[in-house]
Design a protein around this nucleic acid. Sequence first.
DNA 1: GCCTTGTGTTTACATCCGTAATCAAAGGGC
DNA 2: GCCCTTTGATTACGGATGTAAACACAAGGC
Lengths: 122, 122
Amino acid sequence: MISISDAEAQVMEVLWQKSPQSTDDIALVLAKTQDWQLATIKTLLNRLLNKGAISAVQDGRRYAYSAVLQRSAWLAEQSTDLIDRVFGGRVAPLVAHFSRQRKLNVADIASLKALIKELERG
Amino acid sequence: MISISDAEAQVMEVLWQKSPQSTDDIALVLAKTQDWQLATIKTLLNRLLNKGAISAVQDGRRYAYSAVLQRSAWLAEQSTDLIDRVFGGRVAPLVAHFSRQRKLNVADIASLKALIKELERG
DNA sequence: GCCTTGTGTTTACATCCGTAATCAAAGGGC
DNA sequence: GCCCTTTGATTACGGATGTAAACACAAGGC
């Protein structure tokens, strides 16, 4: 199970958006949200490479990086982890928490409803 | 915002179950799930004390520890954090994810349905 | 009154993480 | 052919974390 840190996840998001990309491409996208030096991004790319979360193909004098770890796999891990740790493995309490805390908007409720209907249909 | 680590959260869970408790009480409960030396638990209690997540009242030659940080506050933080980081701030995709993984049982679906109904009523 | 035992406090230490500077190599400009 | 620039690789470093040992001190047994 490849596990990635918060900062690394930021980089993965960029590659999940589009792969492959060069360091520069990635830096450009990240500049919108993070205030990182290029060096920092290089470090993160290297750590991700070392743990096999991304791959690199040489392209002239630079590399083209691609996501290897799937976003869906990461989602699954993160979600299951939280739900297990915090909500005893069940989803409803989390939703309940949000409904109480944070106001689900109309669209959220609609999606949930649709989902439930689908689930009941089997 | 008090932030606690995974290991610290284990200790908090014990105190959320029941407060106050002595180090020994806590160790007894933790022994069921963790393989920690007493010294480790003492360290965690101290770190929690230092960050104000728990309080201690002297009781003879030992302390009685109580949770200060509320479990609900911790839940809120953890949930919001995950949902923001991973699901763009919306709950439905998380539920959808779980439904796809078939992690929702009949009871879950029933609770969700009840919740939705409640939400729609306002 | 001394020694053991229990209990909290202090110190330790390896690893991970965020953040980055520095180094090295390879190409392009002149 | 040599030097600057680009780009990846190596090294750095402080703080958090997991895990725990060492220390200090008080209280009870003998």
